[in-house]
Simulated assay, not measured.
Amino acid sequence: RAHAAGHEVMLHMPMEPFDGRQADARALPVGSPAETVRRRLDAALAALPRATGVNNHQGSRYTADAASIDTFMRALAAQPRPYFFVDSRTTAATRAYRSALDHGIAAAERHVFIDAQRGRSAVRAGWQRWLAHARRTGNAVAIVHPYPESLALLEAELPRLRALGFELVPPSALLDEPRRLSVRATSTTGRQAR
């Protein structure tokens, strides 16, 4: 239904958090073999065929582990069609955004969790942080959960964004493209080729 309504669909891929007691049962564990990662990613994407992007669900431990997140990004880059990646930034130590770009995947980072704290006043404060970040930098990627107080705020505030001078865009509009490397070689005659 989201795709039919013109919205981007993203796979919210469970990954291992630092606090194992909070872990989603489907979370990719740190150190998973490449074949396991590929198989689980393939299955998740097959279950959500309209997805165009991926972000991490939890994943503070997984995204901070260079070898694990690189294994994941290799599997994502090897998909038969391109996907973008949004780093949920569930830890300041995350390497996911950089790893995505290094593997040729367009990527973005979350700037604000609107409802990092529950409750109406906390969610409203998160909303204001999101708008302030967008004013200051020109754009802001936010994550919000389907909590009742979050949904009520979105229902009330989203229709007012344009009047406040903001444009709501899909995540793909705020992606950083991977850097394309240029190689310069010098021949024995001293001429340069690009």
Rank of each mutant, 00 (worst) to 15 (best):
G6F: 06
M10L: 15
L11V: 15
M15D: 01
E16T: 11
E16W: 04
P17I: 10
P17Y: 04
D19I: 13
D19Y: 11
R21P: 00
A25L: 12
A25V: 14
A27P: 04
A27V: 12
G31T: 12
V37M: 10
R40D: 14
L41G: 01
L41V: 05
D42Q: 05
A46V: 09
R50C: 05
A51H: 02
T52N: 00
Q58L: 02
S60T: 13
T63M: 00
D70K: 01
F72H: 08
R74A: 11
P80M: 03
Y83Q: 02
V86E: 06
S88Y: 03
S88I: 10
R89E: 06
T90P: 00
A92V: 15
R95M: 03
R98A: 14
R98D: 13
A100T: 15
L101D: 10
G104M: 06
I105D: 01
A107H: 00
H111I: 05
Q117A: 04
R118F: 00
V123S: 03
A125W: 02
G126R: 08
R129M: 10
A132L: 10
A134W: 01
G138T: 11
A142D: 03
V144R: 02
P146M: 06
E149V: 05
E157N: 05
E157V: 07
L164G: 08
V169R: 12
P171D: 07
P178W: 11
V183R: 13
T186E: 14
T189M: 13
R191N: 11
Q192V: 15
